[in-house]
Amino acid sequence: MSLKGSLFWIKIKGRQISDGIAFLFHRLTGLVILLYLYIHFAALSQLIGSQSTGGQNFQNFLKTVESPPFVALDILLFLVIFYHGANGIRLVFSEFGIGTSRRKLFFWIMMILGVIGWILLTYIVVKAFLGR
């Protein structure tokens, strides 16, 4: 695999949203999710030994992640996950030969479903955040 060739993955000009650009975003969102996973585990690992301080570490941690900037970042993360998930489901169906000839329609249906899921989850999170 060549590095120069891999740069071709991030080419947008002349590409279709439902095809080449969806392919690029699938990779980018995958990287974001992977990065988040590492940060998530790294943050949780800081709580090891929290019992010795009477759970104070955990309380401090919760205070940080429940602050408005973190909630906003969480909502953005949901968007990334919903995009990756919805497009991933489309790719699974496509690899079974389903919907390959109606790619654009299939892509947009999955995107609409993804956005609906994201809005619903955002609503639940924001409601819980405001109701604290």
Binding site: R15, Q16, S18, G20, A22, S94, R103
Partner: peptide
């Protein structure tokens, strides 16, 4: 193949 579909375009 990761189904970018640029071939078909």
């Amino acid at each position: 193949c990761h189904f970018s579909s640029e071939c078909s375009n």
